[in-house]
Design a binder for these strands. Structure first.
Length: 301
DNA sequence: CTCGATCCCTGGACGC
DNA sequence: TGCGTCCAGGGATCGA
């Protein structure tokens, strides 16, 4: 669930609270979501957290070369490196006092030089953590698409043009755009009045530009609101976001469209639950709308 | 190239 | 109350 705005919110929070801290030691819980757990234990201690960046849905903790106490480390720690962190669905990362009991599902603890622990908690372990030096990191980031906040009209159009996938699949494809997930895909398609199952390559230039523009507006607003807290998203200071109050499509099955009052419906597109207004966002021929669940048939709105 | 299916994983919602 | 089942979904992978 953490998508670009949520990850940006976490990265900004981390920047405020851990920048400049040095990692003293590492302790790990379950490690099946970590690329090379031993590398964390071997290479993180002694390094300083110099920057926190976001790349799509990833966070990049930029680390100094390890302090070497007068000699050059022989294990590669003389060069800078990065810790790549993906929050998956349920990942949270934040510092806590080291003496505070560890929450359930805490899988990575980095003891910092100020007595706190930077803890990574992830019940479902859909996240990912990797220790990477410069070259492997560059290679890792190579396959990602454009930054949706920066992408130009022309680049966005060219990344859609000629594709045969559905527009929602393209929005979710991290090699097309980096950072968009299910919520912001549905929200931007609703705002652009484009059905998620439309074929991306069939959008005309005006539709593509509208989609690009509203996607940027939505992401920017969501960042200002510190992201959407559905399920259990909390930022690095334990605060929930507010953007879920502004959702117009996502999660609103059975409720009224804010534009036309028609009932928001759900279908599966690109393997994901997709919410749309059947009136504002006309479906392509043959699209299967899921029947409204009993429980959601009425209710407020 | 794109699709759907399957897997990973846990907690919460729901039905009986 | 409790138990079983389904679903949430980002990403990898595999076969069609």
């Amino acid at each position: 669930m953490p998508e670009l705005p949520e990850v940006e919110t976490v990265a900004r929070g981390l920047r405020r609270v851990i920048l400049g801290r040095r990692i003293v030691s590492v302790s790990l819980g379950k490690t099946d979501f970590i690329d090379d757990p031993a590398a964390l234990e071997e290479h993180l201690p002694g390094r300083q957290i110099e920057a926190v960046e976001r790349y799509g849905k990833f966070m990049l903790l930029r680390l100094s070369a390890a302090a070497s106490a007068g000699r050059i480390p022989s294990n590669g720690d003389a060069v800078p490196a990065s810790l790549l962190v993906h929050l998956g669905m349920t990942g949270q990362i934040a510092p806590s006092p080291a003496e505070q009991p560890r929450e359930k599902h805490t899988h990575v603890c980095l003891l910092l030089d100020d007595g706190r622990e930077l803890r990574y908690v992830d019940a479902r372990r859909f996240g990912r953590i990797a220790y990477l030096t410069e070259a492997p990191l560059a290679e890792e980031l190579l396959g990602f698409g454009a930054d949706p906040l920066e992408v130009s009209t022309e680049e966005f159009a060219s990344r859609i043009r000629g594709r045969r996938a559905r527009i929602k699949a393209l929005l979710l494809d991290q090699s097309v755009l980096r950072g968009v997930g299910n919520i912001y895909a549905d929200e931007s398609l609703w705002r652009a009045k484009i059905h998620p199952a439309r074929l991306g390559g069939r959008l005309n230039a005006k539709q593509a530009e509208t989609l690009r523009r509203v996607l940027q507006e939505i992401l920017q607003k969501a960042i200002v609101m510190r992201g959407s807290s559905i399920s259990d998203f909390l930022d690095a200071e334990g605060e929930p976001g507010e953007y879920q109050r502004h959702h117009r499509a996502y999660g609103r099955e059975g409720k009224g469209c804010y534009r036309c009052k028609a009932t928001i419906r759900r279908g599966i597109v690109a393997g994901r639950s997709s919410y749309f207004c059947p009136k504002c966002q006309p479906a392509p021929r043959g699209f299967a709308v899921l029947p409204l669940p009993r429980a959601k048939r009425k209710r407020d709105n």
